[in-house]
């Protein structure tokens, strides 16, 4: 299907605006009852090969005991993997740590991003605005491996530039990544640094979707700043903002490389997020069976969250548009 759709594209691209329906396959694909399927087919094929098959594989394997390094074939074990994961206290610790991380990271990024976005709104006369925005967005494009390693240096109590500042203020050096009580905050700060710009971007987009006429009308009506914000800005920009929050939440839930390169999940388990323990169990311990089960659990959590989020988002949307 994908091939034929692409072939269609290829043949047609050689023509100019075609007059009348084409012939043969092209005509067939162009028929109203076939066209939608033909257009969606390539994406569906991608989806089936790279998502459905692996997910089913994952699901199947999660019922087996299978270690890549044991040299033994998988052994069916029913729900053993699931019960042992759920009975393992460390899973729950990792999950709650991840939950706190997601809430804090996304919360801070959203609030900071929104206010910075408001700040940059209407900065059209800023000299070098394009450069300034590019610099602001730069953290998003740094390779996580490099960002993590360099932040380790910046945070270092002996060589780090941050601790040099702290020490030159006469304060004792902070062991950002090696003190169990500080490390979580330190890695969180790096995530905030990296992804607040994304929320700034989403805020700018959200603000741009607010019709200027309505804002002007609000000004004429002498609405207070808060009223304008709530009735006009939020009303129009909400959808994009919420989408930004959704994307960030999904990504924060998956955070791995960045933290792995800074602390390896340590000290102790202070920064061990669930994605890190999953990676460990899959590609350090090579326990494919129980890792699959954990992966399935995580997938269910993500799906449940996203479904709820979208449901609420659309429900609100419908309600507001009804009103």
């Amino acid at each position: 299907m994908a091939g034929s759709a692409e072939a269609t594209a290829a043949t047609s691209s050689r023509r100019t605006l075609a007059r009348g329906p084409g012939r043969g396959l092209l005509a067939f694909l162009g028929r109203r009852e076939v066209l939608p399927t033909a257009l969606i087919a390539p994406v569906l094929i991608f989806f089936i090969i790279w998502n459905t098959i692996p997910t089913l594989w994952l699901l199947g394997l999660s019922f087996y005991r299978f270690s890549l390094t044991s040299g033994r074939p998988p052994i069916y074990s029913g729900f053993y993997n699931y019960t042992s994961i759920l009975n393992d206290t460390s899973t729950w610790f990792d999950l709650s740590r991840t939950f706190i991380f997601v809430v804090l990271a996304v919360g801070i990024e959203t609030v900071a991003g929104f206010f910075l976005g408001l700040l940059f709104w209407g900065s059209n006369r800023l000299p070098g605005r394009r450069v300034a925005l590019t610099l602001l967005f730069a953290p998003m494009v740094v390779t996580p491996v490099a960002a993590g390693t360099f932040w380790r240096l910046i945070y270092d109590p002996t060589f780090g530039v941050l601790n040099w500042f702290i020490r030159s203020l006469g304060l004792p050096a902070v062991r950002f990544l090696s003190d169990a009580s500080v490390a979580f905050g330190a890695v969180l700060a790096v995530d905030v640094w990296m992804w607040t710009p994304f929320m700034v971007l989403m805020t700018l987009a959200a603000l741009a979707s607010v019709p200027k006429a309505e804002l002007e009308a609000a000004e004429i009506d002498r609405l207070t700043w808060f009223q304008r914000f709530r009735l006009v800005i939020l009303y129009h920009g909400k959808f994009i903002l919420m989408l930004g929050i959704l994307l960030r939440t999904i990504d924060a839930f998956k955070t791995m490389d960045l933290i792995f390169d800074m602390t390896f999940g340590g000290p102790g388990t202070a920064t061990q997020l669930i994605a890190i323990s999953l990676f460990r169990s899959a590609f350090e311990s090579f326990n494919m069976g129980s890792s699959s089960a954990l992966a399935v659990v995580l997938l269910l959590i993500s799906i449940a969250f996203t479904a709820t989020f979208l449901y609420v988002l659309y429900l609100r949307e419908r309600r507001t548009s009804d009103a």
Binding site: I250, A275, A282, L298
Partner: peptide, 16 residues
């Protein structure tokens, strides 16, 4: 939902 799965979870079946 493709984007929801943590990388380390998605990589596992893809790897196999």
């Amino acid at each position: 939902s493709i984007r929801m799965l943590p990388g380390s979870a998605a990589i596992l079946p893809v790897y196999l």
